[in-house]
């Protein structure tokens, strides 16, 4: 055990000392506050993260980790979604056939498809609960009012993603789900009918609609989501970090 631990930490040191690691993480290994800040500052992927957070904000009871769960679901969705795209053809007889191929031929196809599906449900659920949590913790009040609006936009984009993905298997559920949904959109005054026409690329749910929903689901909406998500997380940090349950004493959670 001990010998193993030795080599384990030796391996860590070896990696940290390598030229590749050092060209990615351009700072020393010393556990100093300065170094910790540099890790965040000098990395594109981490720099939206604050350098320091209060330990209590990490507690489960503080935020119930709802935002984090939602983001994790998104990561799973992107990973599995890309995998599914390798086998999916957005064309009318083939789309449903590809579902069968995933089930009957592709190794682990059902697993990735189901993972995508359940992660999608989790993401919608997580986003809704997150919103509720923010509401009950009065976290929508200034200075966070702008981020609340961003959050609402994110929820809408999430729902649209969920909805556009629903058509892609091209089964009976999908077909009628989208028929009903787009007819609801049509009922909107003035804008409704042209919106439905644009969305479906025609008057009926056909191959055009499938292709449009595919592009929305795989390109436009994810791009929008990632953009807004960046702003959202950035605002969380700029607005003073996550706000948990409001406490009677004035809040001083932030360290610059």
């Amino acid at each position: 055990m001990n010998g193993n631990a030795f080599s384990f930490s030796q391996l860590g040191t070896l990696i940290r000392g390598s030229a590749v690691y050092r060209s990615i993480v351009r700072h020393g290994t010393a556990e100093t506050n300065r170094n910790r800040s540099l890790v965040i500052f000098e990395n594109l992927f981490l720099h939206v993260h604050p350098v320091k957070v209060r330990e209590k904000t990490l507690k489960f009871s503080h935020t119930y980790w709802l935002g984090g769960i939602t983001v994790s679901a998104l990561v799973v969705l992107i990973a599995t979604g890309i995998l599914l795209m390798f086998y999916y053809h957005p064309s009318v007889p083939q789309a449903y056939r590809d579902m069968k191929e995933l089930k009957f031929v592709v190794d682990n196809g059902v697993f990735y498809r189901n993972l995508h599906r359940w992660a999608a449900h989790l993401m919608v659920l997580g986003a809704l609960l997150h919103m509720g949590r923010v509401f009950y913790h009065r976290a929508y009040r200034p200075p966070r009012q702008f981020n609340w609006v961003i959050g609402v936009v994110l929820l809408l984009v999430t729902l649209l993603l969920s909805y556009t993905g629903y058509l892609l298997p091209w089964d009976q559920l999908a077909f009628w789900g989208v028929s009903v949904g787009t007819n609801m959109a049509k009922e909107a005054p003035i804008l409704g009918p042209p919106l439905r026409f644009l969305m479906l690329g025609g008057n009926i749910v056909s191959e055009n609609a499938l292709l449009r929903f595919y592009v929305l689901h795989c390109v436009l909406l994810p791009a929008a989501l990632l953009g807004f998500l960046g702003v959202h997380i950035w605002r969380v940090r700029k607005d003073g970090g996550v706000q948990g349950p409001p406490e009677p004493p004035a809040d001083d959670e932030v360290e610059p």
């Binding site: 056939r97 069968k100 191929e101 089930k103 009957f104 031929v105």
Partner: peptide, 10 residues
């Protein structure tokens, strides 16, 4: 029958 399937029941 369903030619695409590789499971007996399907």
């Amino acid at each position: 029958g369903q030619g695409l399937a590789t499971l007996e029941k399907d």
